[in-house]
């Protein structure tokens, strides 16, 4: 597991920056709620009656009049998007950074199987995503405690489980893309996550593209859905898990016989 440790160390700076930035931003927004509360409460009704905009943001299901509703519609959405972007950056860079940084000739001429390299790197990616979500969730819980809000542990756990899976799915798809190219495609990875995020909002409004919900993992990690239904969408999660596993296997297979030239 030398490479796993190495990979964690290499990622540690980026990890800390992202985790603190996302965690503190969202925590800040939670703490801001008390100052918004009065004005928001008055507007909560009108927010839930804005037609498709309310639908896209889940405000037809949850009311902004409670911190719980505010969390499910605003904070969770922010966490979803930023988390997905973090996962995309990690996923695209995981393998391709060795080639982009010209270290592939050093790493891959050490006696270590390529499959094992891919596996350990992927494990480091999973650890990063899980730690990121754990730390952020912990910060949000502290925010709730500070605000004196009652915490529904089950729905919080379900949401953070779903969002972690969503991030892993996006990161793995980016990982797959990166196995086919030489350059570091951070930009493309970010593009993928933002497009999938937008796809989720659109497919909720436009019946014509409703089927996009099977494609975008943001659909099953939507906190407003999870909070109102009190459970996860099993079918969607299964599709997501399937996409993740298949992407990983294709990436692994492709990487085994990839030409590594500096």
């Amino acid at each position: 597991m030398t490479l796993y440790k190495h990979e964690m160390k290499q990622n540690s700076k980026g990890f800390l920056i992202w985790t603190l930035c996302v965690g503190l931003t969202c925590l800040g927004c939670i703490l801001l709620y008390s100052s918004l509360e009065n004005s928001v409460k008055d507007m909560a009704d009108s927010f839930s009656n804005m037609g498709s905009v309310s639908t896209a943001l889940g405000m037809d299901k949850m009311s902004l009049a409670t911190l719980r509703g505010y969390y499910a519609t605003e904070i969770a959405m922010m966490h979803n998007l930023l988390g997905a972007m973090f996962a995309a950056i990690l996923g695209t860079g995981l393998l391709s950074k060795e080639e982009a940084g010209h270290t592939s000739e050093f790493l891959y001429t050490l006696p270590i199987r390529r499959e094992w390299v891919v596996f350990q790197k992927y494990l480091a990616f999973l650890s990063n995503i899980l730690l990121f979500n754990l730390i952020c969730a912990g910060m949000y819980l502290l925010g709730f405690l500070y605000m004196g809000e009652e915490i529904n542990g089950k729905e919080m756990a379900l949401f953070h489980f779903a969002t972690s899976l969503m991030q892993i799915e996006i990161g793995t798809v980016c990982f797959l893309v990166s196995a086919f190219v030489k350059r570091n495609l951070t930009g493309a990875g970010l593009g993928i996550s933002i497009m999938l995020f937008a796809a989720d909002m659109m497919c909720r409004i436009l019946p014509a593209i409703e089927n996009l919900k099977y494609v975008t993992p943001f659909y099953y990690s939507n906190a407003a859905d999870i909070f109102t239904e009190g459970r996860l969408n099993g079918a969607m999660l299964a599709i997501g898990a399937g996409i993740t596993i298949v992407s990983f296997l294709i990436a692994l297979f492709r990487y085994r016989s990839k030409d590594l030239t500096p």
Partner: peptide
């Protein structure tokens, strides 16, 4: 690879 010592033409490592 266990029995070989290789030195690439570009000596690049992890910068940090």
């Amino acid at each position: 690879l266990k029995e070989v010592g290789y030195m690439p033409s570009e000596a690049m490592f992890y910068p940090s």
